[in-house]
Each structure stands twice: as C-alpha cells, then as structure tokens.
Nucleic acid binder design. Structure first.
Lengths: 234, 234
DNA sequence: TATTGTGAAATAGTTCACAGCT
DNA sequence: AGCTGTGAACTATTTCACAATA
C-alpha cells in the first residue's frame, strides 16, 4: 500500500466507466464546433450530474478553467490518454454465430482506437469464409498472426465460452468482453467484462413490474409539475 | 395503491442486477439434476461471493434451510416471481440495421419470460420484409398491435435514437434497452438501460494499459521487473 | 461573476463475524 | 456439524457546500 505503483493516481472504477461517455459527448460537441464547455453542459450531454462530472475529472487532474469551463480538445486529449486510446487496439471476435457475425458487421466497435482485425471460429464449415471483409480463421491462425496484445470479444454459445476463453488467454489475451450468457473463470491479471442481453431485460422487467403504480403516477404528474420519483424512501 | 407498493421490501439495485445471474446458475444446476445447493456452490456458479449471495437473498426473504442450503426449484421460483417473470414480456426491436437484424436472430433474448414479437423500422425499403420469421412493421403498425406493456430494444443509429424512443414512449413503452451509442432523455417513470460496446472496450483498454504493472506485481511480487507492456504500435 | 475543484457529509454496497436453526 | 441470516464494520460512490480563482 506504499509502493511506487500504488502511489500512481488511483482512479475509481465508477469514474473509469464514465470516461467513455464524456469522450463521446466531447466528440459530439467538437463536431458541432464547440470549443469550450462547462461542466453543466457536458454533464447534460453525457447524462450525468455536473458535480459528479467535476469530481470524476478531478481524478485526472485540473484541466478546467474556473469561471470558463473545459477546453473540448484538451479534455478529449487528456481522457483519451487516460483510457489508453493513443494507440490502436486490435480486437478479435471469437465465435461466428448470429451474434459474432453481427458484431463483425456492426460499426459500433469501430470507434476511434479500436479495429476488429480477426474473426475466429473452430467450425471447419465457417473457417475460411469471408465476413465483413475479413476471413474467418481458427485459433491456430490467430496464434500465427497475433503476437501483440489484443482484446477478445467472446460471442460463442455458452457451452463453448470457457474453452474459447482459455485458448485466447493461452495466446496472451488479457482483456475479454464476454457476450456469452455464462460465467467464465480466468486467472489473475485477465480482465473480463460481460454484456448480457437477457440479464438486462430481466432487470427492466423487475422495474416495470415493481414500479408500475409509481411510474404511472410519475408520468401523469410530470405533465404539469416536475415530480422527482425518489425510489429510496420507506 | 402506491402505498402498498411503496411499503414493499426495498431491494437494492445492485442486488436486482445480480438476481438474473442467480437465476441462470440455478437453471444450470437444475438441468444437472441438482435439487439443493449451498450458498457457497451457488455463488461459485454465479461468479460472486457466498456472503454477498446470502445478503442478496436475504432481501427477498428466508428461503434457505440452515445446515442444508437452498432448494433449487423453490429459489428459482422466488427469484422469478421477484423479477416479474411469471408472465411473458413482449419485446419490440426498433431499428433493423446490422445490429437489430442480429438481435432479432439471436437466441439470447429468448430466455424464459421474454419473446421478441415485433420488429420496427421506418425505412420503407425494410418495412414488410421478413426477418427471423417476423415481418418488419413501422410505428403505426406497432401502435395497432401493441396495446399491452412491452419492452423496447433500441438498435437504431444514434441520430435516430431519441426520436425512436419518443415514439415508443408515446405508445406506452416504459422500459428501454438502448444499444445506440448516445444519451436519450426520457420522462420520469421510463426506465432506460444501456448497452454500449465501444464503452466496454474502452474500459478494457484502460485496464489493459493501466493495470499491467499491478497485475504482474500481484502474480510475481519478486523482482522489480519494470516491464513495458508489449502492445503493438502501428 | 461564473465556474471549477474539493473536503466533508450522506448514501449505497460489500465484507466480516457470529448468532441462530435444522 | 454445517450452513443460513444478519447486525456491525468497512469501503466505495455520490451529493453537498463552498473556497479558490480566472
């Protein structure tokens, strides 16, 4: 707890998870020609509160100007650097079923800093076929071509996810975005984030069921007078 | 009345977000024929800690047996009820581009309790076409067919997302799963969850860049092997 | 004056330790 | 004996209030 590495600025996980939102909001402002933005405006654009935004940014350093706001270009730069977006990251999508196929074609990954460079599957019927301009390869092929550090997007069926993760990790992958609806276990030093569509729907269903009466009240009330629906009272 | 619902047990948001994981782990155990499970085993299967699991379940009530564990069927039932999965939820996917198309074909939504029943797009070239066994309709068509409460999955391009959300909300939608990489604003009483692929990748990139030294330190705390991460520079 | 940056307070969430059952 | 349920302690995160300053 006193080493040099621990003395590095420690950025809260919750803050890290919001930095990409700020980056996106800043990009939108930039294309609109905005050069300076207040925490109030940027927070609005990012869907957070201004005090939270300022607290988040304070973890990166002081890049704002009191009485004025933040320079859009400068702040974009600083957040990009913090997120490690100054060099390109290569992405391998693993599992070329419906979802993997779609992710390969989807532009969503092609944000600044990331490019999908490999499509991996173990099915001989799929290997060698062309998807979205890339040829599907197997893990052996990936091993040949990918000496550098890459991010793996797991889009296999759940029963194949663990093995696929193991193979990716064996090739040196240390960051995995898991779309398979299952838990995968990985060694220390490997980071996994999961995206689970069914889970998200179930969370929505909970709120839709639970909040029905309150929600109806809130909608009707908000036509005229703004009523804050604080869910945390009892 | 809302008095009754407000007086109901308040379940922490963090707990709600984990209930689907427990449900999935329980389903897996059930298909393996397991009838009783300890918090330790279930936590392992769900990828959480056993104390956290027990705390979570304690918010629903006491459904375990001390010295024994939890009845898989019973607990499945209780969590399902809590999440509102005792009746089926109808899902409308809005935006039939690459991603919407894939989500329509993807089995991931078809978990117990949810069925994709409408595909919506405003492009005349797409309306009327058949995708994954469903005919693509426009909002007018959705208005005719969907009097009941539904969940909307937004898969439009970002510039169309706000308008699509507004139209969905006008039809009575109060739960939205937003795949579009942008902020949408909704009135009180409407719940939005977002799934953002680029954001997830950026969070992984941060950790891959930042946590490399710490991760190695943790694994082998021996020598000050001040290693430089071997990411590719192009 | 307008707006940032930040300690302090408040709130939410996790982990611990062990009492309480079966 | 073994395992759940839970208050208490701890940690993380958000919100507040306001000092600092261009």
């Amino acid at each position: 707890m006193s080493t040099a590495s621990a003395a590095r600025r420690e950025i809260p996980e919750a803050t890290v998870a919001r930095l990409p939102l700020y980056l996106r909001a800043l990009a939108a402002l930039d294309t609109r020609g905005v050069e300076v933005v207040s925490s109030e405006e940027l927070a609005e654009a990012a869907g957070v509160r201004s005090t939270g935004l300022r607290k988040d940014l304070s973890h990166l350093g002081s890049y704002g100007v009191r009485g004025v706001g933040y320079d859009v270009g400068r702040l974009t730069e600083e957040i990009s650097r913090e997120l490690g977006l100054h060099h390109d990251w290569s992405v391998a999508i693993i599992g070329m079923g419906n979802l993997g196929h779609a992710l390969a074609a989807y532009g969503g990954f092609a944000t600044r800093g990331f490019s999908v460079r490999w499509l991996v599957d173990e099915d001989p019927a799929v290997i060698g076929t062309q998807i979205a301009g890339l040829q599907v390869i197997d893990f052996a092929g990936l091993a040949e071509q990918a000496p550098e550090s890459i991010i793996a997007v797991l889009a296999t069926p759940p029963h194949a996810a663990q093995q696929a993760a193991d193979q990716a990790i064996a090739l040196g992958v240390r960051s995995i975005l898991n779309f398979a609806p299952c838990v995968i276990t990985v060694p220390d030093g490997v980071e996994v984030r999961k995206v689970d569509l069914a889970t998200e729907l179930q969370i929505l269903a909970f709120h839709e069921q639970r909040g029905r009466d309150d929600a109806l009240d809130a909608i009707e009330e908000s036509r005229g007078l703004r009523r804050v629906s604080s869910r945390g009272e009892q």
